[in-house]
């Protein structure tokens, strides 16, 4: 298992290097001149040139790249031009908001999709199978920003049972003491039930929008994988040996069927990282997605660069985790490496 971890870590290094180069190039190639933007509309050419020198944009690309690498090595992602704040600090501050939203959505999706998929396969052709089909079809055909807007419209505007889509917490509730950065956990740890309820009601709509979006591929994969495993030779052996139905379905079938579901989970998670940007925009969620969108709109390249880098590192770490999880379940992977 340690060998598997090390070999996967080794393959992650070139990916990280690639990401560093690509983020650098990408932000330099973005349309718009940050110097002109920040010098202001009425700025003279000299003023723009001054700003450009201040930002270091007058240097050659290789020089800029070396500077960028040196900064990175010091854990410095530069400062946002519009707020003047260090990008690293902003991302670290905002990451818990995004992480809480994404993880709650993911748990919700997994908690519904896997039992639904398993039941649909075991009771093929019954109402639960049809329900599974409806859910997966609906989930695929609804884009996440649309679900988000629709939910806000119905539950906030029409029915008025949800709070206004304005961030993590209602204006007159104060944020819980920062322990994990997750409001749901921190409010419980500090025994602040009112804040917990407030945070939960704010979180509900965006999390459900994202959960609906990731439910479909998970449920579909679980059902399909479970069906094919239930038809496999070794499940027939298990049945022919008289093993209890529960053992056959869970110990024999499900553990094998979960392998492709783990792979799908990794894919869904990376979709969610992207969907975050849209959902955070719709619900004014103060996460890193919203931060990146605002930066992008003002050609503020340091935050964009930081965001892309953070996402890429997250994505690579996530794939590492998925590989390890896979190795944990499947001895063929574990022992082959």
């Amino acid at each position: 298992m340690l060998k598997l971890l090390l070999s996967r870590l080794a393959t992650a290094i070139p990916s990280i290097a690639g990401v560093i180069v690509v983020t650098f190039m990408l932000t330099r190639l973005l349309p718009g001149d940050p110097a002109a933007y920040f010098a202001g509309l009425a700025a003279s050419p000299q003023a723009i040139a001054e700003v450009r020198t201040k930002l270091g944009l007058d240097k050659s690309l290789p020089e800029q790249f070396v500077g960028y690498i040196v900064d990175l090595a010091h854990g410095n992602l530069g400062n946002s031009l519009s707020t003047g704040q260090p990008v690293v600090a902003e991302i670290v501050n905002r990451l818990p908001a995004s992480a809480e939203l994404t993880l709650v959505a993911l748990f919700l999706a997994v908690g519904i999709a896997i039992p639904l998929g398993v039941l649909a396969a075991v009771k093929q052709g019954t109402w639960i199978d049809h329900l599974c089909r409806i859910v997966t079809t609906a989930g695929v055909s609804l884009p996440v920003f649309f679900t988000g807007l629709l939910m806000a419209y119905v539950f906030y505007y029409l029915l008025q049972i949800a709070p206004a889509p304005t961030g993590r917490l209602d204006a007159f509730l104060s944020a819980p003491t920062d322990i994990t950065g997750f409001y749901l956990i921190d409010s419980i740890l500090t025994g602040n039930l009112e804040t917990f309820r407030g945070a939960l009601s704010q979180l509900a709509l965006p999390a459900i929008s994202m959960a609906i979006f990731s439910l479909a591929p998970l449920a579909r994969m679980t059902r399909g994988s479970m069906l094919s495993v239930l038809n496999s030779d070794f499940v027939r052996t298990a049945r022919a040996s008289g093993l209890a139905p529960r053992t056959v379905v869970f110990t024999y079938a499900f553990r094998n069927a979960v392998l492709p579901v783990i792979t799908t989970l990794g894919m869904v998670f990376s979709f969610l990282l992207g969907a975050n940007v849209l959902v955070e925009t719709v619900f004014a969620w103060p996460g890193i997605g919203l931060y990146a969108v605002n930066a992008l709109l003002t050609s503020d390249y340091a935050p964009v660069q930081g965001f892309v880098l953070a996402m890429a590192v997250l994505y690579i770490a996530l794939n590492l985790l998925i590989d390890l999880l896979y190795g944990l379940v499947d001895p063929r992977v574990r022992l082959d490496s």
Binding site: S232, F234, S241, N256
Partner: peptide, 15 residues
Amino acid sequence: SMIFQNPRTALNPIR
């Protein structure tokens, strides 16, 4: 009891 053709696939691969 029953024994099947194809012993490789007739056993649970991850147990």
